[in-house]
Design a protein around this nucleic acid. Structure first.
Lengths: 217, 217
DNA sequence: TTATCATAGGGGGTTTTCCCTGTTTATTAG
DNA sequence: CTAATAAACAGGGAAAACCCCCTATGATAA
């Protein structure tokens, strides 16, 4: 609570237009007040370390330069677990959401929500300790049966890197060089993925990655 | 001008949070006032046809359900050319921008801009009749040399069919069967396209087709 | 008529992809 | 300490993709 008796919120977002608008919106709620902004994780770290009183909530964007939402969330969870972090993002793909939840955020909100929902989200975050967009819950539910048989597909970091590189014009040999792995290992990744995803060739992989938003054009 | 002496603006965007925030921002400018909202093109059509006084400017999002920004812009240009349309979007790829400009929008603004820029944009749109983000101008400049020699690439019917089939998991042999052509002919198509488009492999073709909207997922 | 151009097809080759099988190595559970 | 598991790596081979240069045919234009 700040002197006005409102709960304190900080915003971390490099989209200035969005961040300012968001601030206006939040300040119009009766129970909340934005106490400061940061353009990225590094700026947030500095501001937090200067302050004696920390915000109760942090609205955290994922796509930022310098230090992105994932790193920032991780740092916050380790160093200031008492601050509840609400991830605010355009991405609704399961990988991103899961990754963010693993970093310890208490809520995940898509940016295309009703203003009223934001108010609800902030309140529930304080009361219940968590809040997720409906779409996020749906996505998570769906992501638990991505394989049409209920098997969970959870990519390892290396696999994810491979998929992203495979969606370029590189040959597997070049990919192996970049990832500093043997071409045979890369071939193993390819083979595993083809089986797991039931695809026939590299084009299938590209299409899969695009559908799941693992890459974007 | 509305009764308060402000220029009138309408917002068409299905992102409610963004739209509301945008409204607050615009209403904070001294010369502009938001007169109504619409979630998509159809809603806009209805609202426009009910009104005797039309807005001077329309902020138009591209990604919307039901009737998207392209269709909406086309309809506005044909039916209400006096309204200046400012496309507001996250997309900064040349195809999207060009497509939108061809539909007759007077400005194209990326969503990640400074609040002050929006004010400038609205003013210039009324005074000069157009306004584009810096990034958009850059993109357009670049897009005027699609082939790096000014040649415009346009595809023959067969080539287009081939491209679309090549963006699936079929082998070239299977594609040849479907198109009832010799595998060698198909290979010729492939070779020509790789040269023309300066791509290295089939993944490059898929990416090209997606960027140019020749196929969709 | 001849030239030219677009379209379809081909010979023959290298590289990459795709697929199966199996081994080494490091980590972890019992 | 040993068993189990996962990750990295490998041999070998068939299929597909990739690439260059070449021919036949038909339409069209000079």
């Amino acid at each position: 609570m700040n002197p006005e008796g409102k709960h304190t919120v900080a915003i971390v977002d490099d989209h200035s237009l969005f961040a300012r608008s968001l601030e206006k919106l939040i300040n119009s709620f009766s129970d909340f007040k934005v106490v400061f902004h940061a353009k990225n994780g590094v700026e947030l770290q500095k501001k937090i370390e200067k302050r004696s009183v920390l915000p109760q909530l942090i609205l955290l964007d994922i796509n930022m330069p310098v230090m992105d939402g994932f790193e920032t969330a991780e740092w916050l969870t380790l160093n200031h677990p008492e601050i509840k972090v609400l991830a605010l993002s355009m991405e609704d793909d399961e990988q991103t959401i899961l990754k963010m939840l693993r970093k310890g955020v208490k809520g995940y909100l898509l940016k295309d929500i009703q203003p009223q929902i934001l108010n609800t989200a902030l309140k529930e975050l304080l009361e219940k300790g968590y809040y997720h967009s409906e779409k996020v819950s749906e996505t998570l539910l769906h992501s638990l049966t991505p394989d049409e048989e209920g098997r969970i597909i959870d990519f390892k970091e290396n696999e994810l890197t491979f998929i992203k590189l495979a969606c370029s014009e590189m040959t597997y040999k070049e990919i192996a060089d970049i990832m500093d792995l043997s071409p045979k290992t890369i071939d193993g990744y390819r083979q595993d993925l083809f089986k797991k995803l039931k695809i026939k060739n590299r084009v299938g992989l590209v299409i899969f990655a695009l559908k799941k938003n693992l890459i974007q054009l």
